[in-house]
């Protein structure tokens, strides 16, 4: 077995008295796409910053490439690609200069950077923007440029903190497509997200974080198998009637989960569950049968929905 690139044991991060990351454990193996799924404030960014060796560990054990960030921060950062949650491109400079300056921070030879810039702009589908300023680029383009910038040093591990947050669906899919390509080329990716579909699409393995803790871990399929049923039926009742009927749903499927605006029925066969609902004489305004997602897993593990 190959050595993991990142190992964390009892890792914690405090800001003053506030515990942002609370005693978490995980390992990231070479070649995998590893996800941190959790709502805002879960502690994902704090964890990414510790791995990126730009934020000190409060307590616990963390090794990146087998090195201690506290003593070997620069050596670790030299082998990492970091795509932060907030773009911090220099908007007054051109696309090319942004990449060039970043490459120089890594002490790469100038000619190598120039060659690399052309490859990366091609990858990021920004070749025709090489000489233009960053400021007028769209959100999706800036994001792709930030990713290209993070790849300038041919990193062994790429950290992407909420790579598609704030992007429209089209820009998002284009970005996913680029990340798939990176994955196919064998890159090791660490991705944080609060979108369950993103985690399902991109991650081989993930941990679910909530309030600084890891509450679940595994592959998306595995997590769904373990913590949810195969299918889910969503029922919407006329306003004010839900409370009165929830009791009468008792016993249908494996689990009944009332939310403020609808009731979820967890069942392996959605059709059977729906039939039973109608047999009991209940008439929901709207029904929807679907497969279980990580959203359901999160709901089961925390009692809350992922995106409020």
């Amino acid at each position: 077995m190959t050595e993991p690139l990142v190992v964390a044991n009892n890792l914690s991060k405090k800001f003053g008295d506030f515990q942002a990351v609370d005693d978490i454990d995980f390992e990231i193996a070479p070649g995998e796409a590893f996800g941190f799924l959790g709502p805002n404030g879960a502690g994902k960014t704090s964890t990414m910053k510790m791995i990126a060796s730009i934020s000190p560990v409060t307590s616990g054990h963390l090794r990146v490439f087998g090195l201690d960030p506290k003593t070997h921060g620069a050596a670790i950062r030299a082998r990492l690609g970091v795509v932060p949650q907030e773009d911090n491109l220099d908007t007054e400079l051109t696309v090319e200069e942004n990449l060039f300056i970043y490459g120089r921070y890594f002490d790469l030879p100038r000619q190598e950077i120039r060659d690399r810039i052309d490859q990366l702009l091609d990858f990021a589908q920004l070749s025709d923007r090489k000489k233009s300023k960053v400021d007028p680029l769209s959100g999706g383009m800036k994001r792709r440029l930030t990713i290209a910038r993070g790849l300038i040093n041919r990193p062994d591990l790429v950290i992407l903190d909420e790579p598609t947050t704030g992007l429209d669906p089209q820009a998002r899919h284009l970005l996913w497509d680029r990340l798939y390509r990176l994955k196919r080329e064998g890159a090791t990716l660490v991705i944080t997200t609060h979108y369950m579909d993103e985690a399902e699409q991109l991650c081989d393995r993930l941990v679910i974080m909530d309030k600084g803790k890891i509450v679940g871990a595994g592959s998306p399929q595995r997590l769904i198998q373990e913590h949810s049923t195969r299918e889910v039926v969503e029922l919407r009742f006329p306003a004010g009637e839900q409370d009165a009927v929830v009791d009468r749903l008792e016993g249908i499927g494996k689990r009944v989960e009332p939310l403020p605006d609808r009731v979820l029925l967890y069942a392996d066969e959605a059709d059977d569950a729906l039939e039973e609902v109608h047999r009991r004489g209940l008439a929901p305004e709207m029904t929807l049968a679907r497969r279980s997602t990580l959203e359901d897993v999160f709901l089961h593990l925390t009692g809350r929905t992922l995106v409020e």
């Binding site: 990126a52 730009i54 921060g73 620069a74 050596a75 950062r77 030299a78 990492l80 970091v82 932060p84 907030e86 911090n88 491109l89 220099d90 908007t91 970043y102 921070y105 890594f106 002490d107 040093n153």
Partner: peptide, 14 residues
């Protein structure tokens, strides 16, 4: 504001 320092610090620069 631009957070350009944070960009530099994600590299070997301390």
């Amino acid at each position: 504001w631009t957070k350009s320092y944070h960009a530099a610090l994600a590299t070997p620069v301390a």
